[in-house]
């Protein structure tokens, strides 16, 4: 505020016209908007406009030259077995990824953080490498490993263990296993990274004083590590719920959107199928809006439950 006053007094002597131009160029009120404008423009063009358009389209039948409003018809069409199959698959998948991708990275991060583990830097990086590969590329390899023939690597292993060879991509249970397995393999390292960074922020003094009070490894873990990691855990939980519901590639690589009996159909896959494969953009938009609502509600509940809204 003070700056601004100084500025206006110093320019008082300059002729009217020049002063005006300088005011625009050097205006301290305008400057912040100019600096944020790249973000704002891209937000409006690539986020806000498409978002609003999606909502509008979800009430339309979108055809070149013949787009018309059809009321709630797209939403009524949602009540079909494919949508519910997609919803079920996506939900089950999300739950599995939550069960696997939060506790395991947490424990691994604690282990990797402790100084007694030899070669921990090697492990840290090797856990992270899968995250750098593209899901599609890795998925192709997975598809070959879990091929249908008895000579495929996974089936060879199954038979070596005395189990039956499986047609992995042909059944609901094994199909779900494949998707969760691929996701776990890929995202484990990323979550470890989040937890590791959280662990670095826990002051060592806490552990030292706890040790003096005679706390063991487990007491320290449950009384110090877990509570202090809570912000990180909430963050990981949020993006995991979100990541689970937006899942598409993991299903795509195994079935190319043509899963038998909808065993691999996900909500995003269903958007793709209806919007592009069947050229029903209005219906696709409606699915997208419902997906948005689901994720929004779930995350709000979750954040409320974990206390993220409480004023600190």
């Amino acid at each position: 505020m003070e700056n601004q006053l100084n500025y206006s007094t110093s320019t008082q002597m300059v002729p009217q016209k020049k002063q005006k131009r300088e005011n625009i160029l050097f205006s301290q009120k305008l400057a912040p908007y100019i600096f944020v404008s790249p973000f704002l423009i891209s937000f409006f063009v690539f986020f806000l406009y498409p978002s609003i358009q999606t909502i509008v389209m979800s009430f339309q039948e979108v055809l070149p030259g013949e787009t018309k409003f059809i009321g709630l018809q797209n939403y009524k069409n949602l009540l079909n077995p494919h949508f519910f199959a997609a919803l079920r698959n996506t939900t089950v998948y999300t739950i599995w990824t939550l069960i696997i991708l939060i506790p395991f990275p947490l424990i691994l991060a604690v282990i990797l953080n402790s100084k007694v583990i030899p070669g921990r830097n090697l492990f840290r990086s090797s856990f992270f490498i899968p995250a750098l590969t593209s899901t599609i590329v890795a998925g192709v390899i997975f598809r070959l490993i879990f091929g249908e023939l008895e000579s495929a690597p996974a089936n060879t292993l199954m038979r070596a263990l005395g189990l039956d060879a499986q047609q992995w991509t042909m059944h609901w249970g094994t199909g779900m296993f494949l998707m969760v397995f691929l996701a776990s393999w890929k995202w484990l390292g990323v979550n470890i990274l989040y937890f590791l960074s959280g662990l670095q922020n826990i002051p060592k003094e806490l552990y030292e004083s706890a040790e003096m009070d005679g706390a063991g490894v487990f007491t320290k873990f449950f009384k110090i590590t877990l509570p202090l990691l809570k912000p990180v855990t909430v963050y990981v939980l949020t993006i995991s719920i979100f990541g689970g519901f937006r899942m598409y590639e993991e299903s795509f690589v195994f079935w190319q959107n043509q899963s038998p009996g909808d065993i691999g159909l996900t909500l995003v896959g269903y958007i793709y199928q209806e919007g592009f494969v069947n050229n029903d953009m209005g219906f696709g938009s409606a699915i997208g809006i419902v997906l948005l609502v689901i994720v929004l509600i779930l995350n709000l509940i979750q954040l409320k439950f974990t206390g993220a809204f409480r004023k600190e």
Binding site: T238, S285, L291, N299
Partner: peptide, 19 residues
């Protein structure tokens, strides 16, 4: 809250905007 909305928005965008 804003974060959630933001993420959710980009969520269905990834679903609809490819290509």
């Amino acid at each position: 809250m804003l974060l959630v909305i933001n993420m959710a928005v980009s969520l269905f965008l990834t679903g609809c905007s490819s290509g």
